[in-house]
Design a protein around this nucleic acid. Structure first.
Lengths: 334, 334
DNA sequence: CTGTTAGCGCTTTCAA
DNA sequence: TTGAAAGCGCTAACAG
């Protein structure tokens, strides 16, 4: 909108547009004197280069896209924070796209982004996404880094957390606290994340010779009221003394359900949940949490993307695993 | 990146670039037959128009910028959610910029955005921002809508919440519950938001003839540990029976401080806080909250911006006030 | 060290 | 209904 452009500057200084352009980019083939004059005028006129023109010419957008299920989510908003930080350092701009777990929206976003609007993509795939076929087609067209919700067999860098281990440790923690009947609140079942967490839970049970009934597993992720009813039902019929919640959104209805049934937490039932709600364990010490390093995941993902953009050599289908933090209760066990 | 462009299509179809361009935009001066051919080929080749070229030519970016203090904040992430939603509906893209409360960063972002990178800006100003002079200069250069953290005397649309009323009601609520010594945890003191909240608190005290000591007001927003220490000190020296926290980040250290001093909440001290942590009042019923309609604020702000962009007539310095929700405890009072 | 020229991909007169 | 041509603002060969 600032209507001063290179031509304006060139005209005012009796220089050619090319010289002005070079001076602005601090080219070594321009005299110090000329540079000073150009910079001074540019500054006084609040000149800002037109990005469309520059991008069109250079075939670079200085912009990356972040495609995620939701912004208003503790994990993703922290990840964006990290991403934005790193992008800023590199002088890049950050576009945000929410899929709301809709894989069709996801595909549409990506297709539109293949037009040169961005130089690279950071993505955490929708839970709804069933096939990686589409992704396989477009990986290679544009630098892309998957984070948290990834495809396992795709030719791209992936950043994940140690979900199997975390779920295993969480379950082991409950077992160590004396739990015998441990219910698992499932979520993101389609995704690797969800599968790994489930395996961790199952293996911990198995390795401790704790009996397991498939009724201990409750699939969720519908509406909250329904989840609460379902959980209540499990609490009544299975009478668990421990609960592992694989997603934050299930922990809360679980908490309510316990209250409704006058089950004391953690005396009657111990709850442990994956959650990036920083304050959860503090506001309510009975809710032990496994927290993913969301900020670091965002930073790492962005750093890798910029390495790729800068053509530093990168193992192109490297998988980087960061560690979640298990926050236990301070005082009494669990 | 998709290297098919209008020229490719034109060549393949024995048409001119102009005709293809018109066909793609469904111009009425192109025959149905030609349009079909163009569309078919475009689809089969996954053609996507190059936005830089299109933007350069049309002087429109189909992009808006959101400038906020932090993404990883319950209020702002929900607001972004609303903004992204509306932008999507209009076929617009959303750029995110975090100021981290640094007004210099804020100014830098805006200056760079005046280059045509975006068609409009949605902003919630940094608490650090002292003067609106810079903003006065650039308002008018680019459509801009202020939300939540605004300048009062600036010639632009502003979306805010009823902060005075909310703080007044919150304080009144505590008074109705029998509180006599009500401490106020301050934040965002530079901003209108902070000032209004403080006034609401003060007026409620005054109108109820409740004694007030300036020691009842605690300024915060440094590091959390220090806040906790300060609050602890106030709890000891002022012996309050009620606390109004003007920001979410002060409520938590306040909660800790009470615990450390073995003060029972809400029996000894009742806490009420501004907060967009959806689960706060549920995880811990003793923490009553005033919740801003963050999603709606985002939607409203974006809607107004698009009205401006579409040149619908808009009262250019209209101020829209949305209402916060006071979530009281379900069971016993306060 | 600086200028001339061409062109990135698209849209839009203007002319046919 | 279609085409030719110009130009958005910037950059990069190439020439001097």
């Amino acid at each position: 909108m600032g209507n001063t452009n290179i031509k304006t500057l060139a005209l005012a200084l009796n220089l050619s547009a090319a010289t002005v352009s070079r001076a602005l980019r601090d080219s070594h083939e321009i005299s110090a004197e000329t540079k000073q004059k150009v910079w001074a005028l540019a500054k006084s006129l609040n000149y800002e280069p037109n990005p469309s023109a520059s991008n069109l010419r250079s075939q670079k957008s200085k912009t990356i896209a972040v495609i995620i299920p939701e912004v208003a989510n503790n994990f993703f908003s922290q990840a964006i924070n990290g991403i934005e930080e790193i992008a800023r350092k590199h002088g890049y701009h950050v576009l945000i796209y929410q899929t709301h777990e809709d894989s069709q929206a996801e595909v549409d976003f990506i297709r539109r982004l293949l037009s040169g609007r961005v130089d690279g993509i950071l993505i955490s795939i929708a839970s709804d996404t069933s096939s990686n076929q589409y992704f396989k087609d477009f990986v290679g067209q544009l630098p892309i880094v998957f984070f948290d919700r990834i495809f396992e067999d795709i030719d791209a860098v992936k950043i994940i957390t140690n979900d199997y281990e975390s779920a295993y440790n969480a379950t082991q923690h409950l077992i160590d606290c004396g739990c015998k009947r441990i219910v698992y609140l499932s979520g993101l079942g389609n995704l690797l994340t969800g599968k790994k967490r489930l395996s961790g839970y199952l293996d911990a049970l198995k390795n401790n010779c704790i009996s397991f009934d498939k009724k201990f597993i409750l699939d969720g992720y519908a509406d909250e009221d329904e989840n609460r009813r379902e959980i209540k039902n499990v609490l009544i019929t299975q009478n668990p003394d421990g609960i592992v919640s694989s997603i934050e959104d299930m922990a809360l209805p679980c908490y309510y359900a316990c209250k409704e049934l006058s089950l004391n937490i953690p005396d009657d039932v111990k709850i442990i949940s994956f959650s990036n709600l920083k304050t959860a364990p503090l506001l309510n010490p009975s809710l032990t949490t496994i927290t993913q390093p969301a900020l670091e995941i965002g930073e790492e993902a962005a750093n890798i993307l910029f390495k790729i953009l800068n053509k530093k050599d990168i193992e192109i289908n490297e998988t980087i695993v960061l560690k979640s933090i298990l926050i236990k209760r301070e005082s009494t066990a669990c």
